[in-house]
Amino acid sequence: MKKIIGKAWKYRDNINTDEIIPAKFLNTSDPKELAQHCMAGIDEGFTKKISLGDIIVGGQNFGCGSSREHAPWAIKEAGISCVIAKTFARIFYRNAINIGLPIIESKEAAEEIQEKDIVEVNLDAGKIINRTKKKEYQITAYPEFMQKLISAGGLLNYISSKMQRGRAKG
């Protein structure tokens, strides 16, 4: 698993997908174009201030609202390596898992990480490490089915390998 480390950018509860990618940018589905407008509904300077690998830290119900997959695509393509939040809205959660954007529920970490803290996430060890505050948090393991999706690199890769196995057996 790729190493995840970066600066934390912190947001409030109920960040919705209109804030992550406003509808005025939905007349395209090109991830690179979407990435230019990432967080434009809440933080217009977002894409200028972040560096590759940075981490978004949200509160409760992160990604609520519309089902637009443009939201996790914009975040992923903007170079964000992981989203940590207290809780996630369900469509955003499954969209992120499906497209291979690492996403972690941790009430404690989301509460305690401060803006611009340097945070490392080690998915294999199941740990979030706040290097600035020198504090570690255990991540609850994903359910078994979702682990398969994640290790396959997303839903379509999972289906593809399942189909290949099916053909090999047949």
Binding site: S29, S67, R68, E69, P72, I91, R94, N95, N98, I99, G154, L155, L156, I159
Partner: peptide, 14 residues
């Protein structure tokens, strides 16, 4: 229920 585009693609296939 609502889902995302990759989910929809998977359903279109399977």
């Amino acid at each position: 229920t609502g889902i995302g585009s990759t989910d929809l693609a998977a359903v279109m296939i399977t």
